[in-house]
Amino acid sequence: MQTASTNICERMGRSQELSDSKRGTVIGCHLCNKCIRDISLLLNIPRSTISGIITKWKQLGTTATQPPSGRPHKIKEWSQRMLKRTVHRSCQLSAESIAKDF
Rank of each mutant, 00 (worst) to 15 (best):
T65I: 12
C35V: 14
D20N: 01
I75H: 07
K100H: 12
A64I: 06
A99C: 11
T49H: 07
I27H: 01
C9A: 11
L83I: 13
I54T: 01
N7K: 14
S79L: 15
Q66G: 03
L41F: 10
I50S: 04
V26C: 00
R47K: 14
V26K: 05
S79M: 15
G24P: 00
I50D: 02
N7E: 14
E96W: 11
C29I: 03
K100T: 09
R85Q: 08
I54D: 02
R81I: 06
G52P: 02
E10V: 07
L31R: 12
A99H: 12
I50A: 03
E96H: 12
Q59W: 04
C91H: 14
T25C: 07
I98S: 06
S15Q: 09
R14L: 14
C9R: 13
G52M: 04
N44H: 15
L18Y: 04
R81V: 05
L42T: 13
D38T: 12
D101Y: 15
I50Q: 02
A95K: 13
G52S: 05
H73N: 12
W78D: 03
T65R: 12
R71Y: 03
P46W: 07
P72W: 02
D20I: 05
R14E: 14
T6Y: 09
L43F: 05
A64R: 13
I50V: 15
A4Y: 14
T3G: 14
S51H: 05
A4S: 10
P68R: 02
T6H: 05
S48H: 11
D20R: 08
M1H: 10
L83T: 09
K84F: 10
I27Q: 02
M12R: 08
S94H: 06
C91D: 15
R47I: 13
N33V: 07
N44W: 07
L18P: 00
R89V: 10
I39Q: 00
R71K: 04
T55E: 05
A4C: 09
L41D: 07
K76G: 05
I8A: 11
P67L: 07
K22R: 06
F102L: 09
S69P: 00
I8G: 01
C32N: 11
I50N: 05
C9S: 12
L93T: 05
P68L: 06
K84D: 08
L93H: 08
C9V: 11
V26G: 00
